[in-house]
């Protein structure tokens, strides 16, 4: 269960101040597959950053599974991200010095998996996202869509209870998008993973249990 209360995020100071989130409150139940939609600049990524513990709200509070994450220190938040959250960035955010495989298994390595376990889990997941033959390529040697799928694989490798994905299909054709969305749906069904996904595409709506519409930093009532 994720509960956000009166979330505000103000960027900058003085006259250049931007109110990216303007008092957003929301509740997402465990096992829900939620879509976040809205115009560009409406605050979707900003909201996802808050929920993914990558940024702190200017005011307001977030509690995840009963933990007020605002009270955690940096080290605890890092550990929280590692153990419970998977995050797919809008711009992939792969480690350029690591190849596809290493990027994917790094989080499980940090959790103490042996190299063998890492390799196994990793090839399984790369297979799921359709990147079997690419495991030894560096990010710089892959297309946008391929990098995006590596980022998705990395987010999934630790079997997070909550998956946050910021336009994970932005660079994929409809066939590959469908593969990813089907995978998400399956994980959501099988593992009761909570999934929060930002999207622009109308046809994605059919996958979501519920949609949160955003406009100018606010949740639109529909």
């Amino acid at each position: 269960m994720i509960i956000g209360r009166d979330l505000k995020r103000i960027y900058g100071k003085g006259p250049v101040q931007v109110l990216a989130l303007n008092c957003v409150s929301l509740e997402i139940k465990k096992g829900e597959f939620v879509g976040i939609m809205g115009a560009s600049g409406s605050g979707k990524s900003t909201l996802l950053h808050m929920l993914g513990l990558l940024d702190r709200p200017t005011s307001g509070s977030i509690s995840i599974d009963g933990i007020d994450v605002g009270t955690l220190n940096e080290r605890e938040r890092t550990l929280f991200r590692l153990r419970r959250l998977g995050y797919v960035f809008q711009d992939y955010a792969l480690v350029p010095e690591l190849n596809a495989r290493e990027n994917v298994y790094l989080p499980s390595m940090v959790r103490g998996m042996t190299p063998n376990e890492c390799t196994m889990v990793c090839s399984e997941i790369l297979d799921l996202v359709g990147l079997k033959g690419r495991s030894h390529h560096l990010p710089g040697e892959m297309s946008g869509g391929e990098q995006q799928r590596v980022a998705i694989a990395r987010a999934l490798v630790n079997k997070p209870t909550i998956l946050l994905a910021d336009e994970p299909c932005a660079n994929l054709d409809s066939q590959n998008s469908r593969i990813i969305l089907d995978l998400f749906k399956k994980l959501n069904g099988d593992l009761r993973q909570t999934i929060i996904m930002v999207s622009h595409e109308e046809w994605h709506k059919t996958y979501f249990d519920r949609i949160i519409y955003m406009k100018d930093g606010l949740v639109e009532k529909k």
Partner: peptide, 18 residues
């Protein structure tokens, strides 16, 4: 030079001390 990379590492749950 690796600022971005360090940010990514922290984002995916790698502690600063590592």
């Amino acid at each position: 030079y690796r600022r971005k990379q360090i940010g990514i590492l922290k984002a995916i749950g790698i502690d600063r001390s590592i």
